[in-house]
Design a binder for these strands. Sequence first.
DNA 1: CAAGCTGTAGCAAGCGCTTTCTACATGAGG
DNA 2: CCTCATGTAGAAAGCGCTTGCTACAGCTTG
Lengths: 354, 354
Amino acid sequence: MTVTLADVAARAQVSPATVSRVLNGNYPVAASTRERVLRAVDELDYVLNGPASALAAATSDLVGILVNDIADPFFGIMASAIQSEIGGPGGRAGGERLAVVCNTGGSPERELTYLTLLQRQRAAAVVLTGGAVEEEPHATAVAAKLRKLAEAGTRVVLCGRPPAPDTQAIALTFDNRGGARALTDHLIGLGHRRLGYIAGPEERTTTRHRLEGHRAALSAAGIEEDPHGTVHGRYDRRSGYEATLELLRRDPSLTAIVAANDSVALGACAALRESGLRVPEDVSVAGFDDLPFSVDAVPSLTTVRLPLAEAGARAGRIAMGREEPPPGGIASVRGELMVRGSTGVPRGSVRVGE
Amino acid sequence: MTVTLADVAARAQVSPATVSRVLNGNYPVAASTRERVLRAVDELDYVLNGPASALAAATSDLVGILVNDIADPFFGIMASAIQSEIGGPGGRAGGERLAVVCNTGGSPERELTYLTLLQRQRAAAVVLTGGAVEEEPHATAVAAKLRKLAEAGTRVVLCGRPPAPDTQAIALTFDNRGGARALTDHLIGLGHRRLGYIAGPEERTTTRHRLEGHRAALSAAGIEEDPHGTVHGRYDRRSGYEATLELLRRDPSLTAIVAANDSVALGACAALRESGLRVPEDVSVAGFDDLPFSVDAVPSLTTVRLPLAEAGARAGRIAMGREEPPPGGIASVRGELMVRGSTGVPRGSVRVGE
DNA sequence: CAAGCTGTAGCAAGCGCTTTCTACATGAGG
DNA sequence: CCTCATGTAGAAAGCGCTTGCTACAGCTTG
């Protein structure tokens, strides 16, 4: 039924071993023999049996990329960059690797499930992207799993994710704290004193770090923080829309809104607009990430640019062992403040609600 | 070093066969034995060797999802929906499947490479999304590959992609022609007579179908088509920006621009704005797909909504054999015209360029 | 001219699992 | 009490490939 190595060998009048060596190209084979084998492969339309070869060689060419939300360009861009350094014909000769992205949907359980599945497949490497969940039963479980993977020879790289101690995992972390700090500093510099903050889900590291940066800026400027000034939500547009309405309800006099990311910021802009408020004349809005659509927004979004593609590419190379890991296994990747149209000096003093 | 089935068997004082049966749950095992085995698995932290089991059972739990551009939400949304019906703990008990998305980057070679890689892994199913390339050496090669896959028992589903004849592949096709027709009809109905069209890459089916729908609408309205009214580009924002400048150069008097998709439309809006033209007062703009950001654009985009998530979910279920394929193996999925702020009646008659 | 290389190819032993077939208790039926 | 289903477990034969080791030409060398 299906063609096997032995069939090819028979056709080429050589032993299976020789065929295997031709295909893997890691052993001297006479040119004439090689050609005969290749012709047989072609004529029989032979396709290597991946599982069999993985079993025999005790290695696999699978590389897993875990993302929180594949429909979010933030992850799409990173995944794309990682993959481009790993899979397909772009890479080194002979080394076809199957780079696969797994969508955890932000669920800790699914993250663990995928990790187990990849461990099962004896993946060559695993790249985890995006913020981690800090909640306890899970964080430890993931760390343990990562350790196991590393022990089994799987290279583990974290991209845009905080380091996982005792794990051997290489981490390229985004400096969310610093970026957030710069962003809020910018707003404060413009004269804003009443700022609202729309945060992401509470249990994520990214959320916490960005919030910490924001608060650091506030306290450095001597602005006492209003506990009502922060609303938590998801990392999507909708969440930004709703949170903005809530912030406006709590404090109609705020002059700036800092969002957890660009999507949230766009939602905020929409809510503001529908509330009859202009951006940035009435309320300034700032995002985070600088996704492609952010320049295009009207007004264009002030945000912190994260080098998603660069970091992803680097993570991919490290995962493939084609680039040295950073010293200590940890590197912090800085964002860059992009000042654009959505932020400006606060208008006068009081605005009447409604 | 690594724990194997045999180790677990030894620990549980049973034969490897029994452990295998407990793990697969497809053979009666006494409750007490099962429990003993499970405990041993737990204590030893045993993880099944995927390749070995795939080899022995001649099946694998891999499901491949091919996308053209993972950084594009169009694909992200579909991939997410497909995956949610396939992978992780969402599915049927016991059946953990590894749903993986492969990014072809729109390159025919990579598409083929991934297909081969999946064939190698003896994937349980493959879902191909997005338009196909029509160029000849490639189209035939892909069809041949799909046939091979199907023969080898891999279920093949096309989602948002035209049917592949002689292939056994199930196809859920988007009615791009019909959607494009409705969209341009709408514009014509508003009174537009000079329309520019920004198309995608020439060799893609999606591009051709949308263009055909557009032209059908024009000719039905008795508008003779200006060969200069169409510019080809990529499916991204940038392309829309550049193409718009080009269209404006060719015909400064056009009153509407139809874009290949929403991203392109956004780029068009940006170019228009920078050229001092208002949307829709001076020029109407229409997109296609209705991605999440389209409602948020200013003005919000008139477009054709494609039920990406629904179609993806359905494709996923079909791929898993959990839903009957449509009769004849082919279903056409219709889009819905969403009339929003970016289109309006054309202004007066002549506008002066510059 | 015998001994020793070098370059190629084959043998055969697994890799870790699944699954068919066989074996053996048990308890039921005659 | 013997025979037979019935339920449960084990033995063992692969699945298709890789790879360490062996074999043996054809050439150098001393």
